[in-house]
Design a protein around this nucleic acid. Structure first.
Lengths: 231, 231
DNA sequence: GCTCGTTTCAAACGATCGTTTTAATGATAC
DNA sequence: GTATCATTAAAACGATCGTTTGAAACGAGC
C-alpha cells in the first residue's frame, strides 16, 4: 500500500501509543477496542500484540512512558527547593508547587500530548481496575514518601494524618480540574480560555493552598477510647 | 404496557438496580456485563431488558432513583438556610454545607447503599460516555443555578467566574474523596475509621471552605485588552 | 374449572471482543 | 543471488457481549 506514509520505519510503537492514549481518554479502557486503536494509528490489528504483548500491557506502557518523566520532574523540583532552603523546612507553597506545578505544566502542553495524558491520568485515579491501581501505586512509590516528609516538616503543628488527608483532597481537586467533564455545567461558559496554559494553575493554586492551610475543625475528627491496636 | 411505577412485584427491579449499582462502582459500566448483574441479583438474564429495556436505560435508572432525592434534599437545605436568613445573603459555609453536606451524609450511609451510590456518582463526574454526561447535566439543571446565585450574593467582591471555578474545584475534591481509590496510597493507613460517618465531613469541610475563601491570585488569570463583558 | 395479562425462563441470535496463526514483505549480511 | 531476521498482513480462533425469542409459570378475576 503506497499511501502518504510508507517510510521505512514509521515507528509503529509510537503511533499505537498515541492513538491508544487519545482513545482511552475519550472512551475509557474497556470501551476502546484494539481495532479502534489500530484503525486510528493506521497499523495492522496484530501489531499491538506483536509490539506490546496484550492490551493490558499496552495500557501500562501508555502510562509508563509519561509517568516516569512526570515523577522524575516532581522529585527534581523538590530537590531544587530543598537545596535552596539549606536544611530549613520548606514553605507549604513550595511543596505544593513542586508536586502540582509539574502536573499543571504538563496538562497545559497540548502540543506533545501532555494535556491528553493528564486527563487520562486524572480519570484513572478513580479507575476501579485492579491492575491499573497497582501499577499507579508502584509508579508513585518513590515520590510519595518524599513529599510526605517535606509536608510533615513544613507543617509541624498540623497532625500528620490531617496533612495527608488534605493532600488527598488537593489531588482530587486537581485531577477533577484537569479530567473532569464539568458535568454540572458550572464553568462551561468560561472554559474557552484554554489558550493561556497557566490560567488553570493561577486559579487552582490559591485554592489548593487555601485548603491546605485552612484552620482545623474545632471538634477532633475521631475520639477513640481505649483501643489503639492498628499495627 | 407498564408505566413508571407501582408494581406489585418490585423485588426483581430493586434487586437488579442494587446489583448493578454495586457492580458498576466496582468494575465500571463497560466492564460490567448483564450476566454479572443478573447473576448477582439472582434473576434471569432477560429480566433486565424486560424491566428496563436496555443496559443504557438501566444505567440511567440506577442514577435517577437516587439523584432525584439527593438534589431535592440539596434544594431543601438551601431553602431552609435562605428562609432563616430573611433576605440577607447567606454565609459561604451555609451554602457549602447545603450542597456538600447532603452528599457527605448520603456517602456516610452504608446501610441503604448511599455510600455505594456516591462512589459511583463521584466516578461518573469523569465518565466520558456521552449519554451519561448529558443525563447528569439534565438532573442538575434545576439545582446549579440556585447555588450559583446564592454564592454570587454571598461573595459579592469575588468575580463570579472565580466563584464558579472554586465550586468546580470543591466538587472535584469531594468526588475524589468519596470515589477516589487512593492510588498514591496517601491515606491508606488511616482509612479504617469508616465507622464514624461524619469523619470525612469534618476533614473535608474546612478544606473546602479554606479553598473557597482563599485570597485571589495577585496576577489576574487573564489579561484581556478591552472588554470585561461576561454577564 | 378457565382466561388473560404479567413475569420468568432457557436458549439462541448476530456482533464484536482480544488474541493467535500463518504467510508475505522488507531490509541486511553474506 | 541466498539466508536470516524483524516486522507487517490477512484471516480466523473461541469467548463473551447485549439483545431477542417463544414458551412456561404465576396470579387475580370470574
Amino acid at each position: 500500500m503506497s499511501m502518504v506514509d510508507s517510510k521505512q520505519h514509521p515507528d509503529t510503537r509510537k503511533r499505537i501509543l498515541d492513538a491508544a492514549e487519545a482513545l482511552f481518554v475519550e472512551h475509557g479502557f474497556e470501551a476502546t477496542s484494539m481495532r479502534m486503536i489500530t484503525g486510528r494509528a493506521g497499523v495492522n490489528l496484530a501489531s499491538v500484540n506483536y509490539h506490546f504483548g496484550s492490551k493490558e500491557a499496552l495500557i501500562q506502557e501508555v502510562f509508563r512512558r509519561r509517568l516516569a518523566w512526570l515523577n522524575h520532574e516532581r522529585l527534581r523540583a523538590l530537590d531544587r527547593a530543598e537545596a535552596g532552603a539549606k536544611g530549613a523546612p520548606l514553605k507549604p507553597h513550595q511543596i505544593v508547587e513542586a508536586f502540582f506545578g509539574v502536573s499543571l505544566r504538563m496538562a497545559a502542553d497540548t502540543e506533545r500530548g501532555g494535556h491528553t495524558f493528564m486527563r487520562l491520568l486524572g480519570r484513572t485515579y478513580t479507575e476501579p481496575t485492579a491492575f491499573v491501581r497497582q501499577f499507579l501505586a508502584d509508579e508513585y512509590a518513590a515520590v510519595v514518601p518524599r513529599f510526605k516528609q517535606a509536608l510533615f516538616r513544613s507543617l509541624p503543628d498540623v497532625p500528620p494524618e490531617e496533612i495527608l488527608w488534605r493532600f488527598h483532597f488537593m489531588l482530587g481537586a486537581m485531577s477533577y480540574a484537569i479530567a473532569g467533564t464539568d458535568a454540572l455545567q458550572l464553568v462551561a461558559e468560561y472554559e474557552m480560555d484554554e489558550k493561556d496554559p497557566g490560567a488553570l494553575a493561577r486559579r487552582l493554586m490559591p485554592f489548593l493552598l487555601g485548603g491546605l492551610r485552612a484552620p482545623l475543625a474545632e471538634q477532633p475528627v475521631k475520639k477513640e477510647k481505649g483501643s489503639r491496636k492498628v499495627a
